[in-house]
Amino acid sequence: MSTKHRLSEFKAGMEPTVKELKFIIIRMRKSPLSIVGIAIILFYVAIALLCPILAPPGYPSQGGDPYKMPHEGWTVTPSPPSEKHPFGTTAYQYDIYYGCIWGTRIAFYVGTLVVGISLAVGLFIGIFSGYYGGVIDEIVMRFTDIIYAFPGLIFAMALVVAFGRSLTSVLIALSLVGWPTYARVMRSEVLRVKQEDYVEAAKAVGCSDLRVIVKHVIPNSIYPLLIMASLDIGGIVLTAAALSFLGLGSSMGFADWGQIINHSRDWLTGVPGNGLAYWYTFVTPGAFIFTFVLGWNLLGDALRDVLDPMIRRR
């Protein structure tokens, strides 16, 4: 078969997928929520890419690591916003502006990595469990049951403490807590698709299991997972921030939004008589978290709205 032939065959095979993607994009354009969401995400992508320009690293206090926030001196009390520190500083004089800018990269990193791992692991296990059923299925189900028995955040906390407090521990803990949901959803979708006629037909024609799974089962069962993933990125960033707030996140001085707030723990409630005395220690970084998550949630919700009737149409 010549390359030209293969190419045209590929194009023909991709046509329905392309049509569907076009349909999704057209629908999404009509929803103002999705437009706002995408705009926010693009805004943060721009910030993440332009980090070195917006907040040039190279301060001596950083010790060569651009992800450590620079600080001048060790004065404990946070300093309010000034010309040198546009967003103010945390306790121990870490520059909040720098932290917020570089924290964008960390946020993308944490969100996409954890969701990517949870999605991949959950996908794999879910397919296996759903397609082959039997003993494997039972074992997997009981395993996920055990993980479900513990509320997610608390389980993650225990894991982080057990592994030692660091960003890597947070990533591992959140991935471990996250994959069962994906596995469960994938499994139930696979169970549903398994019954469909086109799968039976493919098997009857003699397609190998792998081919059936890759060509027929996955494309038809993956949509709920994609919706979950886009919503989860925001959720993971929120959880990671919460863990940082509880002191279980990255190390001191690390440019992570939740960690910025955690630095100024003792000043968050202000002084007696003025709760907002040290507002800058948490309002700005928190606003970054909020808008970042908002963008992803708007996108995910709009995606769900578009894909849902499609799923029902099937």
Binding site: L238, A241, A242, G286, F290, V293
Partner: peptide, 10 residues
Amino acid sequence: IAGWSLPTFW
């Protein structure tokens, strides 16, 4: 959705 995106502690 904005409510859901709020960091609770914030």
